[in-house]
Design a protein around this nucleic acid. Sequence first.
RNA 1: GGCCUCAUCGUCUAACGGUUAGGACAUCGGGUUUUCAUCCCGACAAUCGGAGUUCGAUUCUCCGUGAGGUCACCA
Length: 485
Amino acid sequence: MVVTRFAPSPTGSLHIGGIRTALFAYALARRHNGRFFLRIEDTDQNRFVEGAEAEIEEMLDIYGLAFDEKFKQSERLQLYKQEAEKLIEQGDAYYCFATKQEIDEMRSQAQEGKKTFIFRSPYRDMPLAEARTRIANGEKYVIRQKLPENHVVVFDDGVQGKMSFNTNDIDETVLLKSDGFPTYHLAVVVDDHLMGVTHVFRGVEWLPSVPKHVMLYSAFGYTMPVIAHLPVILDPDGGKLSKRKGSVSARGFLEEGYLPEAILNFLMLLGWSAPLNYEHGERERELFSLQEFVDLFDMKDVNKASPVFNREKLIWFNQKYIQSLTPDLLTLKFSNWLQKYGKDEQLKDMIIKGGPDYLQKILTLEQSRTHIFSELEQLLPPFYRHEGKANLLDSKQTKNMELDTIKQFLKDMALFIESHTLDKISHELWESFVREYADKRELKAGALFMSLRLAILETPFSPPLFEVMGILGEKEVLNRIRKYL
RNA sequence: GGCCUCAUCGUCUAACGGUUAGGACAUCGGGUUUUCAUCCCGACAAUCGGAGUUCGAUUCUCCGUGAGGUCACCA
């Protein structure tokens, strides 16, 4: 059985890269009808952030990455200590009394001499009995991993492939801190084994500590899971993804108005591509639902190189997903978004007052021109408020016209609408009125449409006017036009 | 600096050792259109450099170069 896990630490808001790691782990487990666990790595008391754990779970839920069970490292402290003691007994670890200051001093000395600093504790070979006496006397200690000298550690990464390390280049790392908490290195190995994890996905930043883990697995006699190190997501400017150009947290993207499905789809293609069978006439494809991804996902299709996070492409995905929404879903999702993240309080009130049916009609019209929900905060107001103060000449089409000509047109337009109040004006009738009007006076039809648009909506950009007027209703349209007469 | 890793259009990527090196985003043209979008059509654009292996390297090997990661009682 395939067992994977997502193991974030609750030290802040969940990074979008975390969602990708979780996505891959989730997909592998689901693909093989296995299990997917959440493990909260809260062994650092100093970096603990209140509410971070709840946010991790909330994000996993919103993004649709359901886990089967949750574990918390802080609840299993006794266990790690026990396991560390076991290593001491075996001679694969030792008590160390060196203080942080002492080590820091040695390190800075080595750096001044331009020498590489690999810490080897003076307590490494202290007789166990002596060490235990010191502990009994209340002395502070940590437990360190003991490494064999000049030993080559080989490792076969699930994504990166074969590599090797020499123990001479590696610190004998702390396994159990003086506060009794395990370090990451001890806790992952113990937990992954106890949880029966078969496949691990994590960021490449963990690659350098692989030899420590390999040695721990062998000291414990555990079989190693497949470990796959995912390349980091890079910023277009180089380096790690930075916040300067937009969100980097899982929640931040939701706030900006991206749909979780679109983000997920974008993330899938960052380092993975679907296998293709040209002989069966398959074409390149990049729109995948979570379920389709699960059905297709295989570790061998994951890339080694670090991808750059391209926000334009994310926007394109989001637009595709918005366009594919049914009117009901579009209305529902946008309403939820607005309520949760909307910034324009006045607009929120007006939308509620206008009712869901009115909103849905507008959204259907604006659907093809929205890429992310936050744009709608600019597109919607013309349907809800009207000042009567727009400059009717402020557009490419109307800037060379006489204001009087426009006003006369608006007046005639109003008369036209009034005279047809009883029978519904058809699109054809209405449009031919404008075009004939333009022909007769040697005006440009486009300019007339624009002047109407500016009067009614007070913006040069809008969906087709006929549909807009249909939504506003004749009474409202007349009201708005009259403000300019 | 030590250790480790990576390298195809600007970006995400595809290509049993044999392809006119394919697709998508972006960009630039053109078409549809009542503005803005959408949609459709088209164009531009890449195998980091140098050796080797081979009849033949994007693909295999080595060396450079460039980029990234990491060197905590943080994860």
